[in-house]
């Protein structure tokens, strides 16, 4: 079983420590706007949800890339951008159904979560264990009910 980021939105307090840590490790500056994990804030619902790449089994970003610049990291199973190959065409950012592939303004190239090579900075920085890096059969289980709804509305209807 591969290790993955398990996100538990109920524990999130919206402090953005994960965004700070991510931007620091990935881009070398404390700039949440360059983070590859984003906390979605729904104030009136009292809900905060960090969201980053789910490392799909069948990754749409990978399929979309015309130059095979997104590769699987053998150590972690993460899909990561191979910088020298990326031509900055933005196709992966469009293909991702979750909006978790970004283009960095400095380089114009794609950037996405690569699990920091096996030690995700966001999970380390999270003060409330809302982001846990570990072996889990159900990464993104908080997506389950939404996924079921999508299946019900679109997949099942299409089959019938």
């Amino acid at each position: 079983m591969t290790r993955m980021l398990d996100i538990v939105p109920d524990r999130c307090t919206g402090c953005m420590q994960c965004e700070l840590a991510c931007s620091w490790v990935q881009t070398g500056s404390f700039a949440p706007s360059r983070s590859l994990i984003r906390v979605s804030v729904f104030d009136e619902e009292a809900s905060y949800a960090p969201i980053t790449c789910l490392q799909c089994d069948e990754a749409w970003c990978m399929n979309a890339c015309p130059v095979n610049a997104i590769a699987v990291d053998p150590a972690t199973g993460a899909k990561r951008v191979v910088d020298p190959l990326c031509i900055g065409c933005h196709l992966c950012t469009i293909a991702c159904p979750f909006g978790t592939v970004f283009t960095l303004p400095q380089s114009g190239k794609a950037a996405k979560c690569d699990l920091c090579g096996g030690q995700p900075a966001c999970a380390t920085a999270c003060p409330t264990q809302a982001i846990v890096y570990g072996e889990s059969p159900q990464a993104g289980r908080w997506f389950a009910s939404w996924g079921a709804k999508v299946d019900r509305n679109f997949v099942a209807a299409g089959d019938a």
């Binding site: 307090t13 402090c15 420590q17 009292a46 905060y48 003060p127």
Partner: peptide, 18 residues
């Protein structure tokens, strides 16, 4: 209903209430 934190806060003393 939830704790709420300010930026970079590891305490989260804020109370979200209904």
């Amino acid at each position: 209903v939830a704790n709420k934190a300010c930026f970079a806060c590891t305490i989260a003393c804020g109370r979200v209430t209904r």
